[in-house]
Design a protein around this nucleic acid. Structure first.
Lengths: 212, 212
DNA sequence: GCATAATGTGAGCGGATGCTTGCATTTGGC
DNA sequence: GCCAAATGCAAGCATCCGCTCACATTATGC
């Protein structure tokens, strides 16, 4: 389960952005958490097509009115879930990059790939559903910054290992990893070790390293 | 623009499959084409969220009742568009594979990659929108067969060039190409030559070929 | 020309869903 | 204990959208 950081459900949604209340008492914080947890549960078990505000409120054991006191729109709920996921993923990757820094390209690639796969491993269904939702939602600034941060971790890793044109290479490596992970997960694979090896092979192959 | 093959708008949709009329007169064939063209236009210009049956009928200059005489559901229209796209793509790849067969791995990879990119080049917006729709739609048997056929073209190409475990390798190569193409197109790139080179690099790198 | 089949029409039904609003209940400071 | 602020509630409004149906128009065979 994701840990929700309580980063003000407001401060998002630019177009229909009507300010909403910020929870002050413990009671209302519990309500917000119940709403996010219910939304995650629905996404995980039934996918994003089954998610609507009435159902979220029902599963959360909260009235629809309470939901709209804290989340101005359905998208605000989804954006909050996505932000929490990206935060966790970013922090995990940053820690992995820090630990592996200086251990050589192969080790560093491995560390970053492992961090991203760990993310999917925790809750494959939810992670997959959230990524699908993310594609068709305008990113809020905070989530965009997190994604940029993850990209920068890859760029820095490449530069530490003397690779030129790192930003463009990072773009492609991320795309390659995404492509392989998406295809494997969509095909129902759950062998993350095998997937890890294939992503390593693709990444190092793209970088022109001799095969291991 | 896609050429619609008039492969019986019926013969799809297994669950709510109510037989519908098959066009006999030229008049009704024109109606069907107008409906498919209108749906493609909407997808291309406004994306799949903006597509609904009322709007399709309006853009096609046809009444909503006429639309439902030939297409039992909204999904049947989309499935027909997807089928036409996959047919064209498959035929294009098959022709490319035939011409390039025996010219060596690098040439054959190039030919197949070029065929798939040509497909996107014709109408990037429509191709992109259709692939998004395809992901969340149950494939009809004919489309599934076309996709399987394309996969087989890649497997055969690999086996012609002495590569073992071809089916698994083909799966990964397709995923890699998809990942790179999706990311580039989503980022607004329109330099298909550059994209072609990067996909070649990724594919040959995965296969462990020395860099060119 | 006429009968019949084929095709075209659009008002509107039924249901889903995002969200508002008016009111009830609980909490915390004094 | 009291009151104002915070929180909670759910009926139901407004809209969208997939789709039907009863009827009008056009083509085809004879």
């Amino acid at each position: 389960m994701l840990a929700f950081g309580h980063s003000h459900p407001n401060a998002m949604k630019n177009l229909p952005l009507n300010p909403r209340k910020v929870p002050r008492q413990a009671r209302s914080r519990a309500t917000c958490d119940a709403i996010l947890a219910a939304a995650a549960r629905i996404l995980e078990r039934q996918g994003d097509e089954a998610l609507n505000t009435n159902r979220v409120a029902e599963v959360a054991g909260v009235s629809i009115g309470s939901l709209y006191q804290y989340y101005p729109t359905k998208e605000a709920i989804l954006a909050e879930l996505i932000r929490a996921m990206r935060q966790q993923m970013h922090d995990d990757m940053a820690a992995a990059a820090r630990v592996a820094a200086g251990s050589g390209l192969e080790q560093e690639v491995d560390a970053l790939v492992a961090a991203t796969l760990r993310h999917h491993l925790r809750n494959p269904e939810l992670a997959y559903a959230l990524e699908i939702v993310e594609e068709r939602l305008p990113l809020d600034a905070e989530t965009a910054a997190l994604k940029q941060g993850m990209r920068t971790l890859v760029v820095d890793m490449l530069e530490r290992n003397g690779i030129t044109d790192a930003p463009a290479i990072a773009f492609d490596l991320i795309a390659i990893g995404h492509g392989l992970a998406d295809a494997a997960i969509a095909a129902g694979e759950r062998d993350f070790d095998g997937l890890h090896r294939r992503i390593r092979r693709a990444v190092l192959g793209y970088l022109g390293r001799p095969r291991l």
